[in-house]
Amino acid sequence: MTAHSVAELREAWRAIGAGEFAHGPRSAPIAWSAATTWTPAPGERVVAVVGCAGGVGASTVALALATATGVPARVVECCSPLASGFSATANAELGTEGLWRRGSRGDVLLERPATGDSTVPVPTESSVEWTFVDTNWATVSGPGAGWLGSVLRTLDDVVLVTNATVPGVRRLESCAELLGRDAMGVVVGHPAKRWPRPVKVAAAGIPARVHLADFPLDPRLRVTGLTPDPLPTPLLKAAQNVLALLRKEPT
C-alpha cells in the first residue's frame, strides 16, 4: 500500500467536499502550463535524471544526488501523484505553490505535481544551487513533452538510470543512442565488477560517450520505498562519485 502524507489526505478530503470525486459533472480541471521551454534561475545548475524504464531507481538516485551536494538543492519529480516516489519522503510538508506540492528534507526541497493532468507544469522559481529533474525516458521524449523535451535537448548534464540486468543495460544503450550526446549512465544494482557475464557483454554496446557509474541497491528501500529517514551511507557515497564526475569541466 502506498503511504500518503497528511497534506495529501487533506487535499483528498477537500476534493471530496467540493464534489470533485462525485459522479456526474465535475469542477473544471486546473489549466496546466503548456510551455515548451523553461529557463532556470541564474546560478541554478540543472541535472536531468532520466529513468530508462520504470522502477529502475531514478527517484532514489535523484534524491541521493540532491542530498550529496551538501548545499540547498531540490528534486522536481515529473510524474502523476499516483506514481510519485516521494509521497512519504519529506520530513515536512510545505503545502502547495501553484501547481506543485512541496516538501523538505533538510536542505533538499521536493516538488511534485499537485494534480494528475497529463502535462507536467513548468517548475516554480527557486533559489537553490542544484535542481535535479526526476523523470523517465517515455515522459521526456514522448509527444507533448513540452519543457521536459527542451530540458533533454539543451541541458549539459543528463544522467540516464537503469538497472544491472541485460534488458536494463540494453535499454540504457537505446536511450543513449537516441540522446546522441555525452551523458552519465548510472546502473543500479551490484558493482560493475560483480555483474554477471551477460550483463557485461550487453554493456559493451553502450556508446563510449556515456560514462558508466554503478549505484548500490539498498534492500530496505526495496521494501519500504523512500521514507523520511536518512539515506543509507553507501547510496550517498555513490551519489558523491557521480557528482564528482558531473562537476568536472567538459573535455
Rank of each mutant, 00 (worst) to 15 (best):
A202I: 07
G168S: 13
V158D: 05
A53T: 11
V61N: 08
G185I: 08
P228H: 04
A22Y: 09
P228S: 00
P196G: 10
H211P: 00
V108W: 00
C52G: 11
V108L: 02
S104L: 06
R171Q: 15
T233C: 03
A239L: 09
I206Q: 03
T162C: 13
P29N: 10
G146T: 07
A34Y: 00
V133R: 03
K237D: 13
P143K: 02
D117H: 14
Q240W: 03
E129V: 13
P143N: 04
C79N: 09
A164P: 06
D214C: 13
G146Q: 04
T89E: 00
D214F: 06
P81V: 02
R101P: 00
W147Y: 07
P216H: 07
G185C: 08
G17E: 15
V201E: 14
V223H: 01
V133S: 03
E11K: 11
A204Y: 05
S174H: 15
A83Q: 12
D107Q: 14
W100H: 10
D134Y: 01
P40M: 11
A22L: 14
P191M: 09
P230G: 09
T36L: 05
R10K: 14
A73L: 06
V120G: 01
G70N: 05
R10D: 13
C175Q: 11
I16L: 13
G189I: 06
